[in-house]
Design a protein around this nucleic acid. Structure first.
Lengths: 124, 124
DNA sequence: TAACTATTTAGTTAAATGCCTAAATATGCA
DNA sequence: TGCATATTTAGGCATTTAACTAAATAGTTA
């Protein structure tokens, strides 16, 4: 289960346009590392990408993107795995599933509380 | 549907410990406005509360809490309705439901993409 | 109208954030 | 070993954020 600190970290991470867009790119995929595109022998998930490839899609410097990625990783919404001199980045679907679950629980609890509150109320 | 700007606003609003706790208090209820506690004739939803009542539960000044509430309202996660000289605050369940839906969609899309990717892969 | 209650606005300050460039580190390859 | 590639660290700067106090606004009540 995600504790409060972790949830806040996730919200903070996604509450910035650049990081939100990086997050979107990592999740929806659509491109892989430049080198891998040239070398069809490299086998990675269609969602895997690397720092410099992501940076290519933004007008910010590489260190800036690197720092944003670090924050997304610390929020556990992506994973970063070093292979050779590159870092492969993938979405962490488990965290997103859990967060979605939290919202569902919140909504469900709210609905039942409301049901309890109006238990004895009969509409004409 | 929530657009990107709106989602980012929600994440930014919830990505701060004080606002997250206010949000939690507003959603889980448990207390109503001080005056209303003294006057059982006032009829409000068990979730309704007001600015000063929320502020009582924090070590920050009233203006600070007021500003946080404004940000939560602009993110559409709570509603603030003026009745007399008080403002009644309630959770906006619709926004939370929509956000939860976004996460579910993201997870579902990811799952089907993964299924497609491994379509022809047979595990021994 | 005057005093009281509830809330927001204004102005200030310290800390955090988001960006940059330059330099450092780590790995790969000739 | 030395050069190239990939990424992070360090340091600096401008903007934003989160807090405060004091004052203003809006509505209630005596």
């Amino acid at each position: 289960m995600l504790d409060m600190k972790q949830k806040i970290k996730i919200f903070k991470a996604l509450g910035n346009e650049t990081r939100f867009l990086i997050f979107k790119n990592v999740f929806t995929g659509g491109y892989t590392c430049s080198l891998d595109k040239k070398d069809p022998n490299v086998k990675v998930s269609p969602h895997a990408t690397c720092v410099s490839t992501i940076a290519e899609h933004f007008d910010f410097s590489l260190p800036t993107i690197s720092k944003h990625l670090k924050e997304l990783r610390e929020a556990d919404v992506i994973t970063m795995e070093k292979k050779g001199n590159k870092i492969y980045i993938e979405p962490n679907i488990e965290t997103i599933r859990e967060l979605g679950g939290c919202f569902s629980t919140l909504v469900d609890n709210f609905e039942s509380n409301r049901a309890l509150f109006f238990e004895d109320v009969v509409v004409s």
